[in-house]
């Protein structure tokens, strides 16, 4: 206060004084080191230590993540209205499923001459581009779901279709024929319905109730294209 008065001479008006006087006291010059103690409550630190993953072994970390992914797989296989998939989303499961599906849909031949089948990149792009499109669509329709939550759900719900692909490959080992095709058709249709039902069960609450049909249609189209690719696959 005193210094401020000294420096600002005949400045006598009272109004700005309370505003700036306090500030002049706080101003810190470079000579003074900032002193003080930054304390964190001990309880919080202890909790932090418990949660810290730095000390645990790598195997532990990987197993924990794998367990989380596995738990979500179970949720997809037995869909009910839970928000586990929505609450802590991850993209590991979708990545694993997508890569598995794309690898299985890849044909063995390297020469791409007569190979009209889906390539790895094509499957990959369809899955991610489709999921992003559906998510954007649901956001545009007024859904209250975050971008990655939706990607996570859509990615995890490919699981039935990946299983269908696995079954199809096994069935195709026995050779091709009309009965064979009927079995594949049945499996793919069942798994397709499963995928759609599972994803709508998870995403149902995030869409506005009067526009569910509009939000579900692209999901249907997305899984339909993928399941159709699986059905038409021949090694």
């Amino acid at each position: 206060m005193a210094e401020a008065e000294e420096s600002s001479g005949e400045l006598e008006t009272a109004t700005p004084r309370p505003l700036f006087a306090g500030l002049s006291d706080i101003s810190i010059s470079q000579d003074i080191p900032i002193e003080g103690e930054i304390t964190i409550p001990m309880q919080g630190r202890a909790r932090e230590l418990d949660r810290s993953t730095l000390n645990e072994s790598v195997r532990h970390t990987i197993m924990r993540d794998l367990k989380a992914v596995g738990k979500k797989f179970m949720h997809v296989l037995y869909p009910r209205r839970s928000n586990v998939l929505l609450r802590d989303w991850d993209l590991w499961g979708p990545l694993i499923l997508c890569v598995t599906l794309a690898l299985m849909l890849q044909k063995g031949s390297v020469d791409g001459e007569k190979d009209g089948g889906p390539q790895f990149a094509e499957v990959f792009v369809i899955v991610w581009f489709g999921a992003v499109t559906i998510t954007l669509n649901s956001k545009l329709l007024g859904g209250n779901i975050s971008f990655f939550q939706s990607l996570c759900v859509l990615g995890y719900c490919i699981l039935p279709l990946t299983v269908a692909m696995l079954i199809c490959r096994l069935v195709l080992l026995a050779g091709q024929g009309p009965i064979n095709f009927m079995i594949r058709l049945f499996v793919v249709v069942v798994m397709f319905i499963w995928s759609v039902v599972a994803s709508t069960a998870f995403l149902a609450d995030s869409h506005p109730p009067n526009r569910k049909a509009l939000a579900v249609y692209p999901v249907f189209l997305f899984y339909f294209v993928i399941s159709w690719m699986i059905l038409t696959f021949t090694p």
Partner: peptide, 17 residues
């Protein structure tokens, strides 16, 4: 503690003012 050096600084800055 910081008040005393602060005043010094203020005085030092006097000529500027």
């Amino acid at each position: 503690t910081p008040a005393a050096p602060a005043s010094g600084v203020r005085n030092g800055a006097g000529p500027e003012w």
